[in-house]
Measured scan of single mutants.
Amino acid sequence: KRYRAVYDYSAADEDEVSFQDGDTIVNVQQIDDGWMYGTVERTGDTGMLPANYVEAI
């Protein structure tokens, strides 16, 4: 699945990823209600991200 960031996010922990509004997130997997795991296409960084900061595309 592919998602697009709708807000900027700065990683708060080493297992999270930072991204900017408009970034595409690929290979996304749902972890639980609030978190997903995926790769930021622009940077190649992979990690956890907050589900409410992205939307499906």
Rank of each mutant, 00 (worst) to 15 (best):
D8H: 08
D33Q: 10
A56I: 14
T39N: 03
I31H: 07
D32H: 12
V40C: 04
I57N: 05
M36A: 06
G22D: 03
T39F: 04
D32T: 13
V17Y: 00
Q29H: 14
G47R: 00
V6R: 12
E41Y: 06
E16C: 11
V26K: 08
G22V: 02
S10D: 13
G44I: 02
D13T: 15
M36N: 04
Q29C: 15
R42W: 04
A12V: 12
Q20F: 13
S18E: 03
G47P: 01
Y7H: 14
G38C: 03
S10C: 14
M48E: 03
R4D: 04
A12K: 14
A51Y: 07
S18H: 03
S18D: 06
N27S: 08
A5D: 02
D15W: 14
R2K: 13
D45H: 12
A12L: 13
Y53I: 06
N27C: 13
R4Q: 08
V17G: 01
L49Q: 01
A11Y: 03
Y37W: 13
I25E: 00
Y7W: 11
M48A: 07
E41L: 12
T46D: 04
V40H: 03
T43Q: 01
Q29I: 15
R2F: 08
A5G: 05
G22Q: 05
A56G: 08
Q30V: 13
F19R: 01
V6W: 06
D45W: 05
Y9F: 07
K1E: 10
T24F: 14
T43H: 02
G22E: 03
A11Q: 06
N27P: 02
G22M: 04
R2E: 08
E55M: 10
A5S: 05
R42S: 07
L49P: 02
G22P: 01
E14Q: 12
S10M: 13
V40Y: 00
D13Y: 12
P50V: 04
K1D: 11
Q20N: 11
A12G: 10
D15Y: 14
S10N: 14
A12F: 10
A5W: 00
I25A: 00
L49A: 04
V40G: 02
M48G: 04
P50S: 05
N52H: 13
V17R: 01
Y53T: 08
T39Q: 09
V40M: 01
F19D: 00
Q30W: 15
D15C: 15
R4V: 10
E16K: 10
Y53R: 09
G34V: 13
A51T: 09
D8C: 11
R4E: 05
Y3S: 04
Y9A: 02
N52M: 12
D13N: 15
M48N: 09
V54N: 01
Q20V: 14
T39W: 03
R2L: 09
G22Y: 05
G47W: 00
G44E: 04
D8K: 08
I25L: 10
I57P: 03
V26R: 08
G47E: 01
N52Y: 10
T46V: 09
R4H: 07
T46P: 03
I25Q: 00
N27K: 08
E14V: 13
D8S: 14
G47Q: 00
R4P: 03
R4W: 06
G22K: 05
E41T: 07
Q29R: 11
D33S: 11
Q29E: 11
T24V: 15
V40W: 00
V26T: 10
V28Q: 03
G34C: 15
T39E: 08
S18T: 08
A5Q: 02
P50T: 02
D13A: 14
V54E: 00
D32M: 13
D15M: 13
M36V: 10
E55V: 14
D21T: 15
D8Y: 07
I25H: 01
D33G: 12
T24P: 04
D32S: 15
Q20Y: 12
M36R: 03
V54W: 01
Y3L: 06
Y3K: 03
W35K: 06
Q29Y: 13
D15T: 15
V54K: 00
M36I: 12
N52E: 12
V26M: 09
D13K: 15
E55W: 06
A56L: 15
Q20E: 09
N52I: 13
I31A: 09
F19N: 00
M48P: 01
Y37T: 09
N27T: 06
V17Q: 01
D13R: 15
T43P: 02
V28I: 09
I25P: 01
Q29N: 09
W35D: 03
A51Q: 07
E41I: 08
Q29K: 13
D33K: 09
W35I: 05
G47I: 03
Y37H: 11
R42G: 06
A56D: 11
D21H: 15
G47N: 00
A51M: 11
I25M: 06
E16L: 05
A51V: 11
Y37S: 08
W35N: 04
D13F: 12
A56K: 10
Q30R: 13
V28A: 10
K1L: 12
Y53L: 12
L49F: 15
E16N: 05
D15N: 15
G34Q: 14
D23C: 03
D13P: 02
Y9T: 02
E41Q: 09
R4Y: 08
I57F: 09
Y53F: 12
E14A: 11
T24G: 04
R2C: 12
Y3E: 03
F19S: 02
V40R: 00
M36Q: 03
E55L: 09
Q30D: 09
Y3Q: 04
Q20R: 14
F19W: 00
Y7D: 10
E41P: 01
D21E: 15
D8L: 05
G47L: 02
A5T: 05
I31V: 12
G22I: 02
K1H: 11
V17I: 11
Q30E: 12
I31K: 09
N52L: 10
Q30I: 14
L49Y: 12
G22F: 04
S10W: 13
Q30K: 12
W35P: 04
T43D: 02
V54D: 01
W35M: 05
E16F: 08
G38M: 00
E16S: 08
Y3I: 04
L49H: 02
